[in-house]
């Protein structure tokens, strides 16, 4: 599939068309105008505090790094929570181009259709999730109703914390406790392991709205898109019992200083499923 390339091409066409139409026609409408979109990343969880996951493990994170690729914003609603959009002439033009390039997809069964491209941030970076909020590279977009977003992982990692990631797209370390059991762990994810059902290192159909988790906002001028990250979602289904001493499946041997790499265990499978959840990557726009 060439959808990454096509997405970029689509956005280029959208931005170009927007620029052409606004400059040539003097259109003063409220959609389809080029805007500057700053980008910011925030962490919802207080990682310095222990948090109990769905399986009763109290987890404290001591290190968490994330490799972030381009971010894309779309008119289409998130999967299974969709709303139909009025299309501007720009978006109709883009749709025509899109239909020519790619047959309209009626994906079964969730029917997530990204729809018109509304904006993007294209500069990969790496984040230290314990370091607090950071500004990412500036992006751009067009005015109009925006409802979903696509988060992508960058591999190999680029930017300030790339070395800390040691080639992985996610690297976390911490302590999990339940009853008398304490596990010092490292949980990592490589690029192929975070691929979605379409074999892409991305989470498509994330909510994009006025606040994190909400869907639907009119980007009506220059503004800021905030990517709100929730690492607790990554760990919600991690059952550290699978890596506890005496686990049925055979717990991995602690590597150094009693730290267990959960890779390849069912605990890690739960972690991987968690890092693919859209609720871990929420987008919001403020003017």
């Amino acid at each position: 599939m060439k959808s990454g390339y096509l997405t970029k091409l689509g956005i280029l066409v959208a931005l170009c068309t927007a620029g052409c139409s606004s400059s040539s026609s003097g259109n003063s409408g409220t959609t389809g105008q080029l805007i500057a979109v700053k980008t910011r990343a925030e962490v919802k969880d207080d990682l310095t505090q222990a948090k109990t996951n769905a399986l009763g493990w109290s987890i404290t994170i001591s290190e968490a790094y994330l490799s972030v690729g381009p971010l894309y914003y779309f008119a289409g609603d998130p999967v299974l929570s969709q709303r139909h959009m009025d299309k501007s002439s720009l978006q109709n033009a883009l749709a025509l181009v899109g239909d020519w390039l790619v047959k309209p997809a009626y994906a079964h069964p969730g029917h997530y259709i990204a729809g018109a491209a509304m904006g993007q941030m294209l500069t990969p970076t790496t984040l230290d999730l314990l370091a607090g909020s950071v500004n990412l590279a500036d992006g751009d977009g067009v005015t109009g109703s925006t409802n979903s977003a696509k988060f992508t992982w960058q591999s190999p990692p680029q930017g300030e914390h790339a070395a800390a990631l040691e080639g992985h797209v996610i690297l976390t370390k911490g302590v999990a406790t339940k009853g008398n059991t304490t596990i010092h762990f490292v949980a990592m994810a490589d690029e192929p392991e975070v691929h979605d059902g379409d074999d892409k290192a991305e989470v498509a159909g994330c909510a994009f709205g006025t606040i994190p988790g909400a869907s639907g906002v009119n980007m009506d001028g220059n503004g800021t898109v905030t990517l709100t990250l929730s690492p607790s979602v990554w760990f919600d289904e991690v059952d550290f019992a699978y890596v506890s001493p005496g686990a049925d499946a055979g717990a991995p041997t602690p590597a150094t200083q009693g730290v267990v790499d959960i890779a390849g265990t069912l605990a890690w499978e739960g972690f991987i499923r968690g890092v693919k959840k859209g609720t871990g990557y929420e987008f919001s726009y403020t003017k």
């Binding site: 769905a54 989470v203 498509a204 289904e237 609720t279």
Partner: peptide, 11 residues
Amino acid sequence: TYGTGALGNVN
């Protein structure tokens, strides 16, 4: 794969 896409509450 039993992938859940962007949905967060399907476990």
